[in-house]
Amino acid sequence: MTSITYREPTVSDAHQIWELVKNNKPLDENSKYLYVLLCHQFSKTCCVAESDSKIVGFLSGFIPPKNPDTLFVWQAAVNNDFRNMGIAKELVSHTLCNVDSPIEFVHATVTPSNHASLKFLQNFADNIGAKLNKKPLFSTDVLGGGHEPEDLVVIGPIQKNILEVTN
């Protein structure tokens, strides 16, 4: 079995992260600079999964100033060869267990057609015994360019001790 380690990203990881995201459609591809900033400024709320010195998973997140009890998961990507191994769940769990703030909710936005992400988020909520609620957030009018609407997914409340047991 392949050994996977989880850790905070560093600036030197940004190129591999950018490549991973670029190869994970339907995720939006962002500039390489953005991933440098995430690794530099938001490393505590991001996580990489590594196998044989290669990044095979990445989660980017942040704690919104308006909701200090919330981890907003922005992107999660797992290399095709490492899917269905629980890496995405571990990326979220590792991040939740290692942030300094007491987190009670996980938020994410998902397009209605992204069934894989919706299934993952529901499975994650079920696994930790939390509720999942979904509601419209951004319309196609706001997002423009033929972008699908984005729904807000809210998971919680989360008990941190449950996360530590399920890890």
Rank of each mutant, 00 (worst) to 15 (best):
D13H: 12
T109I: 06
Y6P: 04
S3K: 15
Q41I: 04
L91G: 07
Y33F: 15
S12Y: 05
V11P: 05
L132D: 08
S53A: 09
P9E: 11
V154W: 05
D81L: 10
V56N: 04
V92K: 01
L91M: 09
W74M: 03
N123E: 15
Q159S: 13
S93V: 10
Q75P: 05
T140Q: 11
K25M: 11
I158Q: 01
I158V: 09
Q122K: 15
V106P: 00
I55D: 06
L27P: 02
P112V: 06
D81N: 14
P112Q: 08
R7K: 11
I155K: 01
H115K: 13
S53E: 13
F72K: 00
S101Q: 12
C39F: 02
L20P: 01
I17V: 11
H15I: 12
L91F: 06
K119L: 12
L121K: 00
I17Q: 01
Q159K: 15
S113V: 15
L34S: 10
N80F: 12
N167S: 12
E150C: 01
P102M: 12
T109R: 03
E150V: 02
L118W: 14
S51Q: 11
G145K: 12
H94W: 13
Q159C: 15
K66I: 13
W74D: 01
I128W: 00
K131Y: 10
A14R: 00
V11A: 12
N123H: 13
P68I: 03
K134S: 10
D69I: 04
V142Q: 14
L121R: 00
I55C: 04
H15E: 13
L20I: 01
L163N: 11
N79A: 13
A125C: 05
K89C: 13
L34G: 04
L71P: 06
F124M: 07
A108C: 05
A125S: 09
K54N: 09
M1T: 10
D126V: 06
L20Y: 00
H40W: 12
V106C: 04
C97R: 10
V165W: 11
S117E: 01
E50D: 10
Y6Q: 08
K32Y: 15
S51C: 12
L152R: 02
Q16W: 02
G129M: 04
Q159H: 14
A77C: 07
K131E: 14
L91S: 07
T166A: 10
K25V: 13
E8I: 14
E150R: 01
D13L: 11
N67Y: 08
Q41W: 11
N133S: 08
F42Q: 11
S53Y: 14
K22T: 13
